[in-house]
Write a protein that binds this DNA or RNA. Sequence first.
DNA 1: TCCAGTTTTCTAGCATCGCTAGGATTACTA
DNA 2: TAGTAATCCTAGCGATGCTAGAAAACTGGA
Lengths: 188, 188
Amino acid sequence: MTQRQRRVRDRTERAQRIVTAARELAEAEGWDAVTTRRLAALIEYSQPVLYSHFPGGKDAIMAAAALEGFAELATALARARDGGLAGIAGAYIEFAVAKPALYDAMFTLASELRFAQDDTPEVMKANFAELLAVIEPVAGTQDAGVLTEVFWSTLHGLVTLDRGHRLSPAHRDERLALVVERFGPRGD
Amino acid sequence: MTQRQRRVRDRTERAQRIVTAARELAEAEGWDAVTTRRLAALIEYSQPVLYSHFPGGKDAIMAAAALEGFAELATALARARDGGLAGIAGAYIEFAVAKPALYDAMFTLASELRFAQDDTPEVMKANFAELLAVIEPVAGTQDAGVLTEVFWSTLHGLVTLDRGHRLSPAHRDERLALVVERFGPRGD
DNA sequence: TCCAGTTTTCTAGCATCGCTAGGATTACTA
DNA sequence: TAGTAATCCTAGCGATGCTAGAAAACTGGA
């Protein structure tokens, strides 16, 4: 029986190696360079092995990578909770800059993952909860949930537009300061 | 000589037909369905003809479509200038909802077009100018240019996250109202 | 009107992609 | 050790973007 346990352990290890290889390759050369053939070569197995682990194919591998990303982003945000608005906004942007391919998998290329659904994984909701925890104290009379959605949208927009060379690189810090000021407690 | 003129006119007309066909197909079935073979069939010419018009291939065709999009967005924003923050924000989101594939070509799939460069087309700058014109009166002591970048990021984030089913569909109007309130003139 | 020369267009094919069927190999069971 | 079951690989399918070289159409001067 212990042999059977070793076999399933080997399988999960290999699944992890696939996702890790995909992430590294994506960060190094972009998701377009992540082909099933290159992945198979990296883990030193043939192509169909990938499909025994991820029946959904390449999309499923990207979704698995994205799920890891959500978990990592959630812990990064939790660590920055004490920093208030500026802290959590900075942590969010820092994550997106440090792992751009992963961020893409999470938000722009995730055709499989859905938010605000019943089957939405907990790790995905955790990110929203972290943002909400920081927004709530400064929401005032406004709906904290909706305000969190807007706050999140601003961060996401800053990240994606900046990466697309749409924003002036010189004003990066200024933008962050403005976000903190605009989403801070109202003066009235 | 007039025959030569007719020939160049035919060529530009055909180039336009290519871009138009690409846009219609993209809005109907997404950019993945826009293949060079289907485009060639739609304009009733063979595949290589596309490359005589757009040496850059499919990416160049998407870039041409994106440029049309920037022009159309600029006029839509200009028309909404009198509506202030709420008007222009609503016009921006309405454009993105009405032409989602075009919006993707402009912002998420445009690997060729660059902002904030010397060779940035005027139509792309015009969009920023329209937003700036509305932000400027409410910027107060803050840098209007940077504030416009943040305001734009918020709109872009709302659009992309909403399309990715990341935001609650029920709160769409509430989010817009919150944006207008947060980016309006400060109360102090 | 006919015939070079130029331009335009098409046929055919290359390399690569995601993905899968079917056979071969290995490991487990009795 | 024979039979069964799980595992893996070879080979190939259809489709993609793109391109070389042949074929066709148009041009302008005898």
